[in-house]
């Protein structure tokens, strides 16, 4: 058992998914992965993660819809959702935040950035 937050990485690009998961696992973060929105929702339903790194451009169910559905369940209120996307247009960012994402980070980003953003948000959540 570890006190590090459990992270669900949702990314349709396998290379990125592998990179992020490798990086996080190297630093002992419990990591789960999902390659589309449907799989992500099932994973959350099965077990609530602490943090979700959510790519917005996903097959089947896109990232905005995934965030909205997760947030529609009040029991998921504590899950930190960090959205990341190559579409860094303001409208899309706003849409992501309205869907329930806590933070938006644009690609490209080094894995360290995700960890930094996650730590900030957790720190903020924990007060």
């Amino acid at each position: 058992m570890t006190d590090k937050p459990e992270i669900l990485i949702v990314e349709d690009n396998n290379d990125n998914l592998e990179t992020f998961s490798t990086f996080l696992e190297f630093f002992k973060y419990p990591v789960r992965t999902a390659s589309d929105g449907e799989e992500a929702l099932k994973s959350v339903a099965a077990k609530k993660p602490d943090v979700i790194f959510l790519d917005l451009s996903l097959p089947k169910i896109d990232g905005w819809e995934v965030a909205r559905r997760i947030r529609s369940d009040s029991s998921n209120a504590n899950i930190v959702i960090i959205a990341f996307s190559a579409m860094a247009l303001p409208a899309e960012i706003e849409r992501a935040l309205q869907a329930g994402c806590n933070r938006f980070v644009s690609k490209p980003l080094p894995p360290e950035t995700l960890i930094e953003e996650m730590n900030k948000l957790i720190q903020k959540r924990n007060g």
Partner: peptide
């Protein structure tokens, strides 16, 4: 251009990530 930006950012994310992995001696 939007598409180009997206298409560049996604693989670059992977490249940068892999470099980070290498840099961190992972």
């Amino acid at each position: 251009l939007k598409n180009l930006s997206i298409q560049l950012r996604t693989p670059l994310t992977s490249v940068i990530g892999q470099l980070s992995l290498l840099e961190k001696n992972i």
